[in-house]
């Protein structure tokens, strides 16, 4: 998993480093931010020391109103070995007791001119995108009618050829062969190509082609949310393939379950059309129209009506 250093934060948000320069290489490993309000009131039982600490107007004015001995003790308790850093918002003065404790521990104290809420939400967004879990998958990602479809399958099964046909039909290529996937939140996986090979497609017999220069800017996308995965495999006589489409298989990427279809490959089967229709059918299902389910209900109805053949 990626790590963010205090130094990256200073560069990104143009923060002023007030104390604790020794600690600018401390790492932030969680995107949660803590505003230690209750801690300032003396309640340290659940103090999340591993988070970035944000002190705003409320916390600071409260601290400044405390008795000096208590203030020193509480501010000192805020500085822990695992704390990545403390940020002061609105350009407030750093309480000298906090500065002292931070210098001793080499804990960076940073200052921003932004308001606390604004800074807090921007920090969260930044940290969440930087700390999102990522992985790389062998496959092709295509945007078909606005649905991000990840095509997987063994090498040489025809993923790239299918992608080419899909591009020719007006869909968009995101990544060929290697797809970098980042989990943006619990339910969202976003795929993008590695920089070096974006817009490129490798077709056996032709070599590497550039889809953008060949088909135009409309034929590519730089990232796309993945909604559906399609696994291609050579037709296996002993395996039963889904004939109804009533059950939904899923595939797990990072912590996210994605619907998955397995499509057998055999000469004479036009994969691009099948995948195109799979994407359309997936959209239709999400809009509430499930052909397989409707048919099955109808069939059950007929079976359950005993005098159906009486007329």
């Amino acid at each position: 998993m990626a790590n963010v250093h205090i130094k990256d934060l200073i560069d990104e948000f143009r923060l002023e480093l007030v104390h604790g320069e020794r600690g600018i290489h401390r790492t932030i490993s969680t995107s949660d931010i803590s505003r230690p309000g209750l801690e300032m009131a003396g309640y340290f039982a659940y103090y999340p020391a591993d988070r970035l600490q944000l002190l705003g107007k409320t916390e600071l004015s409260f601290v400044n109103g405390l008795d000096e001995r208590i203030r020193r003790e509480r501010l000192r308790k805020l500085c822990r070995e695992q704390t990545p850093g403390i940020i002061i918002s609105r350009g407030w003065e750093v309480p000298p007791e906090l500065g002292e404790a931070a210098e001793e521990m080499g804990l960076p104290i940073l200052r921003s001119q932004l308001t606390t809420t604004r800074l807090s939400s921007r920090l969260t967004n930044y940290l969440e995108s930087k700390l999102a879990p990522t992985t790389a998958v062998h496959g092709v990602l295509v945007d078909i009618y606005g649905i991000g479809v990840l095509i997987t399958g063994a090498s040489g099964v025809g993923k790239s050829e299918t992608a080419l046909e899909l591009v020719k039909r007006g869909h968009r290529l995101v990544a060929d062969d290697s797809v970098e996937i980042r989990q943006e939140d619990e339910k969202t996986l976003v795929g993008s190509p590695p920089d070096l090979i974006q817009h490129l497609l490798e077709i056996r017999g032709l070599g590497i082609i550039n889809v953008m220069t060949l088909f135009g800017a409309g034929a590519i996308r730089n990232f796309k949310k993945i909604a559906l995965t399609i696994h291609l495999e050579t037709w296996n006589q002993n395996k039963t393939y889904d004939r109804l489409g009533l059950d939904e298989e899923t595939m797990k990427i990072i912590d996210c379950e994605l619907p998955r279809l397995t499509v057998p490959v055999r000469p004479g089967r036009n994969l691009a059309v099948i995948i195109e229709v799979a994407a359309m059918n997936f959209r239709l299902k999400r809009m509430g129209v499930n052909a397989a389910q409707q048919f099955s209900d109808k069939l059950n109805n007929v079976i359950d009506t005993p005098d159906y053949d009486d007329f």
Binding site: A136, H138, D177, S178, P194, I197, E202
Partner: peptide
């Protein structure tokens, strides 16, 4: 930390 399928040329080349 980036792992790619060694049977895919684009994957290998993307590692540089």
């Amino acid at each position: 930390g980036k792992k790619v399928n060694a049977k895919s040329i684009m994957g290998i080349m993307s590692l540089a």
